[in-house]
Design a protein around this nucleic acid. Structure first.
Ligand SMILES: [Zn+2]
Ligand SMILES: [Zn+2]
Ligand SMILES: [Zn+2]
Ligand SMILES: [Zn+2]
Lengths: 148, 148
DNA sequence: ACGATAATGATATCCGTTCTCAGAGACGTG
DNA sequence: CACGTCTCTGAGAACGGATATCATTATCGT
């Protein structure tokens, strides 16, 4: 299914403009192997670690295109750094718990949360609305460490 | 109750450092009259519209202190601009619906949403965790306009 | 009023992101 | 394969919100 996302992303980007390019391919190939969010900087580093010489501007451009096509999910933790993760076109997604202390990021899914958000959006006339959810606090490990 | 927040904020800021200053007072006085979020720039403009000569740096400093004391809620819509609104120390709060089209911001409250978030955080060991929620989409007005 | 020290404001700096533009690369055609 | 066209690419400049710096001002206990 990693392969499926990569194939789908490459195909849809090509049909969007009729062209393909090395930078896009490199970003897609790297992102397809990730399952949670990374910053543009981290993606740039990862792509270069794969041996590709890609400019940071092209990373941002690729991410922008992928976002417009719904192939990538933009995530914002409020720290001034945008993060990106591959998105399931069917709408399956997760949200994030972030430890204020150690910075650890944990994904989670919750059906009741999704239902509540859908009900709120629909009730206000915002059909098919997107949503961002971030839960912040001290994780179990950090709390245990503080007590010791 | 607007007065109550202003009084409480001024008192707690003073006891935090033993000093009071004009810039802080001006920011608190202005913020106390708001009921939803504004950017630091907008707060700066509002304070100056009140006739106070306050530097933007002092606005950021006041907001930082207020945030640390839990007197202000930081809100992030992912557009690279932090917003701030007065926060109820008892924990009462709302979240936001943002129209992607016209930029309108509507606050909302939802008990089921809060319950779901609390359950998720508790289940993962994140006690007393904070959370950010933003719902984005086209508002009713904008959808109607697009059809016409 | 005085001295110690925190607060203030103008400005410089930082840093993530976007813009610019010349050159390289991809694709259709012959 | 050679050519022309048009997109993509990458280096660096530009941008903008937020933060740091530092000389000056204001506050408060004495
Ligand atoms: Zn994730
Ligand atoms: Zn969701
Ligand atoms: Zn609000
Ligand atoms: Zn809430």
């Amino acid at each position: 299914m990693v392969e499926a996302w990569i194939e789908s992303a490459l195909g849809r980007m090509r049909s969007a403009t009729g062209r393909s390019g090395g930078a896009r391919r490199a970003v897609v190939a790297f992102l397809g192997r990730q399952d949670c969010c990374l910053s543009a900087q981290e993606i740039h580093d990862g792509v270069r670690a794969d041996g590709e010489r890609v400019g940071i501007a092209s990373v941002y451009r690729a991410l922008e295109s992928l976002d417009e096509l719904g192939l990538v999910q933009r995530v914002d933790f409020g720290d001034g750094v945008a993060r990106f993760e591959p998105a399931d076109p069917r709408g399956d997604h997760h949200h994030h718990l972030v430890c204020d202390d150690c910075g650890k990021v944990e994904p989670f899914e919750d059906i009741a949360l999704e239902a509540a958000l859908e009900r709120v959006a629909g009730g206000r006339g915002y059909e098919a609305a997107a949503h961002d959810v971030v839960v912040r606090g001290a994780c179990e490990d950090c709390r245990a460490q503080l007590q010791a």
